[in-house]
Write a protein that binds this DNA or RNA. Structure first.
Lengths: 230, 230
DNA sequence: TCTGTCGCTTGATACTAGTCAAGCGCTCGA
DNA sequence: TCGAGCGCTTGACTAGTATCAAGCGACAGA
Protein backbone atom coordinates (compact mmCIF):
# COMPACT_ATOMS: atom_id res chain seq x y z
CA UNK A 1 0.00 0.00 0.00
CA UNK A 2 1.03 3.55 -0.55
CA UNK A 3 1.95 4.47 2.99
CA UNK A 4 5.59 5.31 3.43
CA UNK A 5 7.56 5.23 6.64
CA UNK A 6 8.22 8.94 6.35
CA UNK A 7 4.51 9.61 6.54
CA UNK A 8 4.08 8.09 9.96
CA UNK A 9 5.09 11.09 12.11
CA UNK A 10 2.34 13.31 10.70
CA UNK A 11 -0.15 10.50 11.24
CA UNK A 12 0.95 9.86 14.78
CA UNK A 13 0.17 13.47 15.62
CA UNK A 14 -3.52 12.97 14.84
CA UNK A 15 -5.60 12.94 18.03
CA UNK A 16 -7.21 9.72 16.90
CA UNK A 17 -3.90 7.89 17.18
CA UNK A 18 -2.07 9.74 19.90
CA UNK A 19 -2.68 7.21 22.64
CA UNK A 20 -1.94 4.12 20.58
CA UNK A 21 1.19 2.05 21.05
CA UNK A 22 3.86 2.19 18.34
CA UNK A 23 3.20 -1.39 17.42
CA UNK A 24 -0.55 -1.06 17.17
CA UNK A 25 -0.22 2.05 15.04
CA UNK A 26 2.31 0.36 12.79
CA UNK A 27 -0.07 -2.58 12.30
CA UNK A 28 -2.90 -0.24 11.47
CA UNK A 29 -0.81 1.76 9.03
CA UNK A 30 0.41 -1.37 7.29
CA UNK A 31 -3.16 -1.91 6.18
CA UNK A 32 -3.95 1.69 5.31
CA UNK A 33 -3.27 4.06 2.47
CA UNK A 34 -2.30 7.69 2.46
CA UNK A 35 -3.43 9.26 -0.76
CA UNK A 36 -3.34 12.63 -2.43
CA UNK A 37 -6.35 13.96 -4.27
CA UNK A 38 -6.70 17.05 -6.46
CA UNK A 39 -9.34 19.67 -5.73
CA UNK A 40 -12.89 18.68 -6.57
CA UNK A 41 -12.17 14.96 -6.47
CA UNK A 42 -15.16 12.79 -5.64
CA UNK A 43 -14.38 10.54 -2.73
CA UNK A 44 -17.61 8.83 -1.81
CA UNK A 45 -21.20 8.86 -2.91
CA UNK A 46 -24.30 8.87 -0.77
CA UNK A 47 -25.94 5.47 -0.49
CA UNK A 48 -22.87 3.30 -0.96
CA UNK A 49 -21.40 1.05 1.68
CA UNK A 50 -18.22 2.21 3.39
CA UNK A 51 -15.05 0.42 2.33
CA UNK A 52 -12.83 2.81 4.19
CA UNK A 53 -12.70 5.26 7.01
CA UNK A 54 -11.36 8.55 5.71
CA UNK A 55 -9.22 10.95 7.68
CA UNK A 56 -8.30 14.37 6.33
CA UNK A 57 -4.60 14.87 6.94
CA UNK A 58 -4.27 17.92 4.73
CA UNK A 59 -6.70 20.01 2.71
CA UNK A 60 -10.47 20.26 3.10
CA UNK A 61 -13.41 18.03 2.30
CA UNK A 62 -16.99 18.96 1.51
CA UNK A 63 -19.67 16.65 2.88
CA UNK A 64 -22.92 17.18 1.07
CA UNK A 65 -26.26 15.57 0.51
CA UNK A 66 -28.16 15.44 -2.75
CA UNK A 67 -31.83 15.31 -3.58
CA UNK A 68 -33.21 15.58 -7.06
CA UNK A 69 -30.28 17.56 -8.34
CA UNK A 70 -30.16 19.90 -5.36
CA UNK A 71 -27.11 19.85 -3.14
CA UNK A 72 -26.66 20.98 0.42
CA UNK A 73 -23.38 21.07 2.30
CA UNK A 74 -23.76 19.44 5.66
CA UNK A 75 -20.26 19.83 6.93
CA UNK A 76 -16.82 20.88 5.83
CA UNK A 77 -14.03 18.84 7.29
CA UNK A 78 -10.55 20.13 7.95
CA UNK A 79 -7.55 18.26 9.37
CA UNK A 80 -7.27 16.41 11.59
CA UNK A 81 -10.85 15.13 11.37
CA UNK A 82 -12.30 11.97 10.01
CA UNK A 83 -15.53 11.63 8.14
CA UNK A 84 -18.26 9.02 7.76
CA UNK A 85 -17.09 7.36 10.92
CA UNK A 86 -20.64 6.52 11.96
CA UNK A 87 -21.34 4.64 8.75
CA UNK A 88 -18.12 2.70 9.11
CA UNK A 89 -18.78 1.65 12.68
CA UNK A 90 -22.29 0.49 11.89
CA UNK A 91 -21.42 -0.79 8.41
CA UNK A 92 -24.38 1.07 6.94
CA UNK A 93 -24.67 3.18 3.78
CA UNK A 94 -23.29 6.68 3.81
CA UNK A 95 -25.81 9.41 4.32
CA UNK A 96 -23.74 11.91 2.42
CA UNK A 97 -21.30 12.35 -0.41
CA UNK A 98 -17.81 13.76 -0.12
CA UNK A 99 -15.47 15.62 -2.40
CA UNK A 100 -12.26 17.51 -1.85
CA UNK A 101 -12.46 21.29 -1.90
CA UNK A 102 -8.73 21.82 -2.19
CA UNK A 103 -5.89 19.44 -3.01
CA UNK A 104 -5.90 17.07 -0.07
CA UNK A 105 -4.03 14.29 1.56
CA UNK A 106 -6.29 11.63 2.95
CA UNK A 107 -5.66 8.59 5.06
CA UNK A 108 -7.85 5.62 4.23
CA UNK A 109 -8.26 2.73 6.64
CA UNK A 110 -10.32 -0.27 5.53
CA UNK A 111 -13.60 -0.37 7.48
CA UNK A 112 -13.10 -3.89 8.67
CA UNK A 113 -9.69 -2.98 10.04
CA UNK A 114 -11.20 -0.03 11.90
CA UNK A 115 -13.81 -2.23 13.50
CA UNK A 116 -11.30 -4.96 14.41
CA UNK A 117 -8.80 -2.55 15.84
CA UNK A 118 -11.54 -0.86 17.79
CA UNK A 119 -12.30 -4.08 19.65
CA UNK A 120 -8.67 -4.92 20.33
CA UNK A 121 -7.13 -1.59 21.17
CA UNK A 122 -8.76 0.51 23.83
CA UNK A 123 -6.61 3.57 23.11
CA UNK A 124 -7.85 3.53 19.54
CA UNK A 125 -11.39 2.94 20.75
CA UNK A 126 -11.13 6.01 22.95
CA UNK A 127 -9.94 8.04 19.99
CA UNK A 128 -12.80 6.83 17.84
CA UNK A 129 -15.61 7.71 20.25
CA UNK A 130 -14.03 11.01 20.94
CA UNK A 131 -13.93 11.80 17.28
CA UNK A 132 -17.47 10.54 16.73
CA UNK A 133 -18.79 12.49 19.69
CA UNK A 134 -17.13 15.61 18.33
CA UNK A 135 -18.79 15.13 14.95
CA UNK A 136 -22.13 14.47 16.64
CA UNK A 137 -21.91 17.71 18.50
CA UNK A 138 -20.97 19.53 15.33
CA UNK A 139 -24.12 18.39 13.46
CA UNK A 140 -26.25 19.14 16.49
CA UNK A 141 -24.94 22.69 16.47
CA UNK A 142 -25.67 23.06 12.79
CA UNK A 143 -29.20 21.83 13.34
CA UNK A 144 -29.84 24.16 16.26
CA UNK A 145 -28.43 27.01 14.26
CA UNK A 146 -30.67 26.24 11.29
CA UNK A 147 -33.75 25.99 13.42
CA UNK A 148 -33.30 28.92 15.72
CA UNK A 149 -31.51 31.62 13.81
CA UNK A 150 -32.10 33.60 10.68
CA UNK A 151 -29.69 33.08 7.83
CA UNK A 152 -28.05 36.45 8.41
CA UNK A 153 -27.47 35.58 12.06
CA UNK A 154 -25.90 32.29 11.04
CA UNK A 155 -23.54 34.11 8.76
CA UNK A 156 -22.70 36.66 11.45
CA UNK A 157 -21.86 33.88 13.87
CA UNK A 158 -19.82 32.03 11.32
CA UNK A 159 -17.77 35.17 10.72
CA UNK A 160 -17.21 35.65 14.42
CA UNK A 161 -16.12 32.03 14.75
CA UNK A 162 -13.74 32.29 11.83
CA UNK A 163 -12.16 35.46 13.16
CA UNK A 164 -11.65 33.78 16.48
CA UNK A 165 -10.00 30.75 14.93
CA UNK A 166 -7.87 32.98 12.72
CA UNK A 167 -6.95 35.06 15.76
CA UNK A 168 -7.58 38.18 13.73
CA UNK A 169 -10.37 40.52 12.74
CA UNK A 170 -9.50 40.03 9.10
CA UNK A 171 -9.35 36.76 7.26
CA UNK A 172 -9.83 35.21 3.84
CA UNK A 173 -12.75 33.01 3.05
CA UNK A 174 -11.33 29.50 2.87
CA UNK A 175 -13.93 28.48 0.28
CA UNK A 176 -16.17 29.77 -2.45
CA UNK A 177 -19.00 31.96 -1.31
CA UNK A 178 -21.56 29.67 -2.87
CA UNK A 179 -20.19 26.75 -0.85
CA UNK A 180 -20.27 28.77 2.31
CA UNK A 181 -23.84 29.76 1.52
CA UNK A 182 -24.81 26.13 1.09
CA UNK A 183 -23.08 25.21 4.33
CA UNK A 184 -25.05 27.91 6.12
CA UNK A 185 -28.23 26.61 4.54
CA UNK A 186 -28.91 29.49 2.18
CA UNK A 187 -28.67 30.36 -1.50
CA UNK A 188 -25.77 32.36 -2.97
CA UNK A 189 -28.18 35.22 -3.60
CA UNK A 190 -29.22 35.29 0.04
CA UNK A 191 -25.59 35.19 1.05
CA UNK A 192 -24.92 38.36 -0.90
CA UNK A 193 -27.85 40.13 0.66
CA UNK A 194 -26.89 38.95 4.13
CA UNK A 195 -23.37 40.26 3.77
CA UNK A 196 -24.86 43.56 2.65
CA UNK A 197 -26.93 43.65 5.84
CA UNK A 198 -23.90 42.85 7.97
CA UNK A 199 -22.07 45.83 6.51
CA UNK A 200 -24.36 47.89 8.69
CA UNK A 201 -23.09 45.90 11.68
CA UNK A 202 -19.35 46.31 11.41
CA UNK A 203 -18.35 43.87 8.67
CA UNK A 204 -16.51 44.70 5.48
CA UNK A 205 -16.31 42.27 2.58
CA UNK A 206 -14.01 42.77 -0.41
CA UNK A 207 -13.60 39.78 -2.63
CA UNK A 208 -12.57 36.88 -0.44
CA UNK A 209 -11.43 39.18 2.35
CA UNK A 210 -13.66 39.66 5.37
CA UNK A 211 -12.83 42.36 7.89
CA UNK A 212 -14.61 42.98 11.14
CA UNK A 213 -14.41 46.69 11.90
CA UNK A 214 -16.71 46.61 14.88
CA UNK A 215 -16.46 43.27 16.71
CA UNK A 216 -18.72 44.41 19.54
CA UNK A 217 -21.40 45.62 17.16
CA UNK A 218 -21.29 42.40 15.19
CA UNK A 219 -21.47 40.32 18.35
CA UNK A 220 -24.49 42.27 19.47
CA UNK A 221 -26.22 41.49 16.21
CA UNK A 222 -25.15 37.84 16.12
CA UNK A 223 -25.97 37.13 19.76
CA UNK A 224 -23.46 34.28 19.86
CA UNK A 225 -24.03 31.68 22.51
CA UNK A 226 -21.07 30.44 24.50
CA UNK A 227 -22.30 26.91 24.30
CA UNK A 228 -22.34 26.97 20.53
CA UNK A 229 -18.67 27.77 20.19
CA UNK A 230 -16.29 24.94 19.71
CA UNK B 1 -28.57 3.05 44.90
CA UNK B 2 -32.04 2.31 43.76
CA UNK B 3 -31.29 -0.52 41.34
CA UNK B 4 -32.85 -3.79 42.41
CA UNK B 5 -31.77 -7.25 41.34
CA UNK B 6 -35.14 -7.81 39.71
CA UNK B 7 -34.46 -4.92 37.35
CA UNK B 8 -31.38 -6.49 35.83
CA UNK B 9 -33.06 -8.70 33.20
CA UNK B 10 -34.73 -5.75 31.45
CA UNK B 11 -31.42 -3.90 31.51
CA UNK B 12 -29.46 -6.82 30.16
CA UNK B 13 -31.75 -6.86 27.13
CA UNK B 14 -30.60 -3.38 26.10
CA UNK B 15 -28.35 -3.51 23.02
CA UNK B 16 -25.82 -1.40 24.82
CA UNK B 17 -25.21 -4.16 27.35
CA UNK B 18 -25.89 -7.31 25.42
CA UNK B 19 -22.30 -8.29 24.84
CA UNK B 20 -21.04 -7.53 28.31
CA UNK B 21 -20.08 -10.24 30.77
CA UNK B 22 -22.36 -10.85 33.75
CA UNK B 23 -19.70 -9.61 36.09
CA UNK B 24 -18.96 -6.42 34.19
CA UNK B 25 -22.65 -5.61 33.93
CA UNK B 26 -23.16 -6.27 37.62
CA UNK B 27 -20.29 -3.91 38.46
CA UNK B 28 -21.74 -1.25 36.23
CA UNK B 29 -25.22 -1.62 37.69
CA UNK B 30 -23.93 -1.45 41.22
CA UNK B 31 -22.94 2.12 40.48
CA UNK B 32 -26.06 3.07 38.58
CA UNK B 33 -29.62 4.04 39.34
CA UNK B 34 -32.86 3.07 37.73
CA UNK B 35 -35.39 5.77 38.33
CA UNK B 36 -39.02 6.47 37.50
CA UNK B 37 -40.10 9.91 36.42
CA UNK B 38 -43.58 11.29 35.86
CA UNK B 39 -44.55 12.89 32.55
CA UNK B 40 -43.08 16.33 31.91
CA UNK B 41 -40.24 15.88 34.37
CA UNK B 42 -37.15 17.95 33.64
CA UNK B 43 -34.09 15.76 33.46
CA UNK B 44 -31.27 17.94 32.25
CA UNK B 45 -30.74 21.50 31.17
CA UNK B 46 -28.74 22.80 28.26
CA UNK B 47 -25.34 24.12 29.23
CA UNK B 48 -24.75 22.01 32.32
CA UNK B 49 -22.05 19.41 32.66
CA UNK B 50 -23.10 15.77 32.45
CA UNK B 51 -23.15 13.90 35.75
CA UNK B 52 -24.85 10.88 34.24
CA UNK B 53 -25.44 9.02 31.05
CA UNK B 54 -29.19 8.52 30.65
CA UNK B 55 -30.81 5.51 29.04
CA UNK B 56 -34.53 5.36 28.38
CA UNK B 57 -35.75 1.97 29.53
CA UNK B 58 -39.43 2.82 29.33
CA UNK B 59 -41.39 5.87 28.24
CA UNK B 60 -40.26 8.69 25.96
CA UNK B 61 -37.96 11.67 26.32
CA UNK B 62 -38.02 14.99 24.53
CA UNK B 63 -34.66 16.51 23.67
CA UNK B 64 -34.99 20.18 22.93
CA UNK B 65 -32.96 23.31 22.57
CA UNK B 66 -33.91 26.75 23.81
CA UNK B 67 -33.08 30.21 22.61
CA UNK B 68 -34.61 33.34 23.98
CA UNK B 69 -37.74 31.62 25.14
CA UNK B 70 -38.22 29.65 21.93
CA UNK B 71 -37.99 25.90 22.03
CA UNK B 72 -37.28 23.41 19.31
CA UNK B 73 -37.39 19.65 19.66
CA UNK B 74 -34.27 18.09 18.25
CA UNK B 75 -35.04 14.48 18.93
CA UNK B 76 -37.48 12.26 20.71
CA UNK B 77 -35.93 9.25 22.33
CA UNK B 78 -37.71 5.96 22.88
CA UNK B 79 -36.38 2.80 24.54
CA UNK B 80 -33.88 1.40 24.31
CA UNK B 81 -31.87 4.48 23.43
CA UNK B 82 -29.54 6.62 25.43
CA UNK B 83 -29.22 10.35 25.25
CA UNK B 84 -26.44 12.91 25.65
CA UNK B 85 -23.87 10.22 25.15
CA UNK B 86 -21.59 12.56 23.21
CA UNK B 87 -21.47 15.09 26.03
CA UNK B 88 -20.68 12.35 28.54
CA UNK B 89 -17.85 10.88 26.51
CA UNK B 90 -16.24 14.25 25.95
CA UNK B 91 -17.19 15.63 29.35
CA UNK B 92 -18.53 18.79 27.77
CA UNK B 93 -21.73 20.75 28.45
CA UNK B 94 -24.99 19.42 27.07
CA UNK B 95 -26.19 21.05 23.91
CA UNK B 96 -29.80 20.34 24.72
CA UNK B 97 -32.30 19.97 27.49
CA UNK B 98 -34.35 16.88 28.20
CA UNK B 99 -37.73 16.19 29.75
CA UNK B 100 -39.96 13.15 29.88
CA UNK B 101 -42.99 13.14 27.61
CA UNK B 102 -44.71 10.25 29.33
CA UNK B 103 -44.04 8.54 32.66
CA UNK B 104 -40.64 6.97 32.13
CA UNK B 105 -38.15 4.64 33.61
CA UNK B 106 -34.62 5.82 33.15
CA UNK B 107 -31.27 4.25 33.86
CA UNK B 108 -28.62 6.66 35.05
CA UNK B 109 -24.95 5.75 34.96
CA UNK B 110 -22.44 8.22 36.42
CA UNK B 111 -20.39 9.76 33.60
CA UNK B 112 -17.08 8.86 35.12
CA UNK B 113 -18.18 5.24 35.41
CA UNK B 114 -19.19 5.24 31.74
CA UNK B 115 -15.80 6.56 30.71
CA UNK B 116 -13.90 4.14 32.94
CA UNK B 117 -15.91 1.13 31.86
CA UNK B 118 -15.45 2.16 28.26
CA UNK B 119 -11.70 1.85 28.56
CA UNK B 120 -11.76 -1.45 30.39
CA UNK B 121 -14.55 -3.37 28.68
CA UNK B 122 -14.42 -3.68 24.92
CA UNK B 123 -17.93 -5.15 24.67
CA UNK B 124 -19.31 -2.07 26.40
CA UNK B 125 -17.13 0.14 24.21
CA UNK B 126 -18.58 -1.50 21.13
CA UNK B 127 -22.09 -0.87 22.46
CA UNK B 128 -21.30 2.77 23.13
CA UNK B 129 -19.97 3.62 19.67
CA UNK B 130 -22.79 1.77 18.08
CA UNK B 131 -25.28 3.77 20.05
CA UNK B 132 -23.45 7.02 19.38
CA UNK B 133 -23.17 6.28 15.67
CA UNK B 134 -26.91 5.57 15.57
CA UNK B 135 -27.66 8.89 17.21
CA UNK B 136 -25.28 10.66 14.85
CA UNK B 137 -27.06 9.25 11.86
CA UNK B 138 -30.39 10.24 13.35
CA UNK B 139 -29.44 13.93 13.66
CA UNK B 140 -27.91 13.89 10.22
CA UNK B 141 -31.21 12.65 8.80
CA UNK B 142 -33.11 15.35 10.61
CA UNK B 143 -30.76 17.98 9.22
CA UNK B 144 -31.01 16.69 5.66
CA UNK B 145 -34.76 16.57 5.99
CA UNK B 146 -34.91 20.14 7.25
CA UNK B 147 -32.70 21.42 4.49
CA UNK B 148 -34.10 19.59 1.53
CA UNK B 149 -37.79 19.12 2.09
CA UNK B 150 -40.79 21.32 2.68
CA UNK B 151 -42.53 21.01 6.03
CA UNK B 152 -45.46 19.18 4.49
CA UNK B 153 -43.11 16.66 2.91
CA UNK B 154 -41.42 16.13 6.24
CA UNK B 155 -44.75 15.40 7.84
CA UNK B 156 -45.71 13.03 5.02
CA UNK B 157 -42.49 11.11 5.48
CA UNK B 158 -42.89 10.99 9.20
CA UNK B 159 -46.35 9.51 8.77
CA UNK B 160 -45.07 6.89 6.35
CA UNK B 161 -42.28 5.99 8.78
CA UNK B 162 -44.69 5.70 11.69
CA UNK B 163 -47.05 3.49 9.75
CA UNK B 164 -44.18 1.26 8.82
CA UNK B 165 -42.99 0.95 12.39
CA UNK B 166 -46.56 0.36 13.56
CA UNK B 167 -47.00 -2.24 10.84
CA UNK B 168 -50.35 -0.72 10.01
CA UNK B 169 -51.91 2.02 7.94
CA UNK B 170 -53.61 3.39 11.02
CA UNK B 171 -51.90 4.49 14.19
CA UNK B 172 -52.22 6.92 17.07
CA UNK B 173 -49.95 9.87 17.45
CA UNK B 174 -47.62 8.99 20.31
CA UNK B 175 -47.29 12.64 21.31
CA UNK B 176 -49.03 15.97 21.25
CA UNK B 177 -49.39 17.52 17.83
CA UNK B 178 -47.55 20.64 18.95
CA UNK B 179 -44.58 18.51 19.99
CA UNK B 180 -44.60 16.66 16.73
CA UNK B 181 -44.75 19.98 14.92
CA UNK B 182 -41.72 21.20 16.83
CA UNK B 183 -39.86 17.99 16.10
CA UNK B 184 -40.56 18.43 12.41
CA UNK B 185 -39.36 22.00 12.64
CA UNK B 186 -42.68 23.77 12.19
CA UNK B 187 -45.31 25.63 14.21
CA UNK B 188 -48.54 23.98 15.40
CA UNK B 189 -50.46 26.18 12.97
CA UNK B 190 -48.36 24.98 10.07
CA UNK B 191 -48.86 21.42 11.21
CA UNK B 192 -52.62 21.83 10.97
CA UNK B 193 -52.40 23.25 7.50
CA UNK B 194 -49.98 20.55 6.39
CA UNK B 195 -52.28 17.80 7.58
CA UNK B 196 -55.07 19.49 5.67
CA UNK B 197 -52.93 19.37 2.52
CA UNK B 198 -52.13 15.70 3.08
CA UNK B 199 -55.81 14.89 3.19
CA UNK B 200 -55.70 15.41 -0.55
CA UNK B 201 -52.99 12.77 -0.70
CA UNK B 202 -54.57 9.86 1.05
CA UNK B 203 -54.26 10.71 4.74
CA UNK B 204 -57.08 10.97 7.23
CA UNK B 205 -56.63 12.59 10.63
CA UNK B 206 -59.21 12.39 13.39
CA UNK B 207 -58.03 13.47 16.79
CA UNK B 208 -54.88 11.53 17.56
CA UNK B 209 -55.70 8.88 14.96
CA UNK B 210 -53.91 8.95 11.62
CA UNK B 211 -55.09 6.70 8.82
CA UNK B 212 -53.42 6.27 5.48
CA UNK B 213 -56.12 5.50 2.92
CA UNK B 214 -53.87 5.69 -0.08
CA UNK B 215 -50.31 4.61 0.79
CA UNK B 216 -49.15 4.78 -2.83
CA UNK B 217 -50.52 8.27 -3.27
CA UNK B 218 -48.92 9.47 -0.07
CA UNK B 219 -45.60 7.91 -1.00
CA UNK B 220 -45.71 9.65 -4.34
CA UNK B 221 -46.20 12.97 -2.61
CA UNK B 222 -43.60 12.32 0.10
CA UNK B 223 -40.95 10.92 -2.25
CA UNK B 224 -39.35 8.99 0.59
CA UNK B 225 -35.76 8.03 0.11
CA UNK B 226 -34.67 4.51 0.99
CA UNK B 227 -31.53 5.80 2.59
CA UNK B 228 -33.47 8.00 4.99
CA UNK B 229 -35.37 5.14 6.55
CA UNK B 230 -33.98 3.62 9.67
C1' DT C 1 -5.77 41.76 -26.54
C1' DC C 2 -10.19 40.13 -26.98
C1' DT C 3 -13.90 37.31 -25.53
C1' DG C 4 -16.41 33.69 -23.22
C1' DT C 5 -17.14 31.75 -18.84
C1' DC C 6 -18.08 31.78 -14.24
C1' DG C 7 -18.89 33.49 -9.76
C1' DC C 8 -20.98 37.15 -7.65
C1' DT C 9 -24.36 40.83 -7.04
C1' DT C 10 -28.74 43.21 -7.58
C1' DG C 11 -33.57 43.66 -8.74
C1' DA C 12 -38.30 42.03 -9.11
C1' DT C 13 -41.40 38.70 -7.74
C1' DA C 14 -43.28 34.45 -5.64
C1' DC C 15 -43.91 31.35 -2.02
C1' DT C 16 -43.28 28.95 2.27
C1' DA C 17 -43.97 29.19 6.83
C1' DG C 18 -44.45 32.20 10.87
C1' DT C 19 -47.27 35.44 13.64
C1' DC C 20 -51.32 37.22 15.59
C1' DA C 21 -56.01 36.67 16.58
C1' DA C 22 -60.29 34.45 17.08
C1' DG C 23 -63.19 30.50 17.56
C1' DC C 24 -64.15 25.55 18.40
C1' DG C 25 -64.53 21.42 21.13
C1' DC C 26 -62.96 18.33 24.53
C1' DT C 27 -61.61 17.35 29.33
C1' DC C 28 -61.53 17.96 34.00
C1' DG C 29 -62.69 19.91 38.26
C1' DA C 30 -66.01 22.40 41.03
C1' DT D 1 -73.91 19.79 34.89
C1' DC D 2 -71.64 23.72 33.90
C1' DG D 3 -67.65 26.51 32.99
C1' DA D 4 -62.69 27.32 32.55
C1' DG D 5 -58.71 26.05 30.33
C1' DC D 6 -56.18 24.09 26.86
C1' DG D 7 -54.97 22.12 22.53
C1' DC D 8 -56.21 22.43 18.03
C1' DT D 9 -57.90 24.68 13.87
C1' DT D 10 -58.76 28.46 10.72
C1' DG D 11 -58.25 33.07 8.81
C1' DA D 12 -55.71 37.24 7.62
C1' DC D 13 -51.53 39.18 7.28
C1' DT D 14 -46.31 39.36 7.32
C1' DA D 15 -41.50 38.15 7.23
C1' DG D 16 -37.85 35.75 5.48
C1' DT D 17 -35.93 33.31 1.70
C1' DA D 18 -36.03 31.27 -2.66
C1' DT D 19 -36.41 31.83 -7.53
C1' DC D 20 -35.82 33.91 -11.89
C1' DA D 21 -33.53 37.15 -14.60
C1' DA D 22 -30.19 40.39 -15.83
C1' DG D 23 -25.85 42.69 -15.38
C1' DC D 24 -21.06 43.16 -13.70
C1' DG D 25 -16.22 42.09 -13.37
C1' DA D 26 -12.24 39.10 -13.13
C1' DC D 27 -9.81 35.54 -15.05
C1' DA D 28 -8.33 32.05 -18.68
C1' DG D 29 -7.68 30.59 -23.14
C1' DA D 30 -7.48 31.72 -28.03
Amino acid sequence: MSLRRSDVPSIRALPLFQQMSEQALADLMAQSMLQRFPARADLIREGELPDFLYIVVEGAVDLYATRDGEETTIDIVYPPSSFILAAVMRDEPWLKSARTLTPSQILMIPSQVVRDTFSRDSAFARGIVDELAKRYRAVTRVLKNDRMRSSTERLANWILGMAQRAGSNAFELPLEKRKLASFLGMTPESYSRSIAVLEKHGVRSQGAMITIDDPAGLAEFAKPSAIEAD
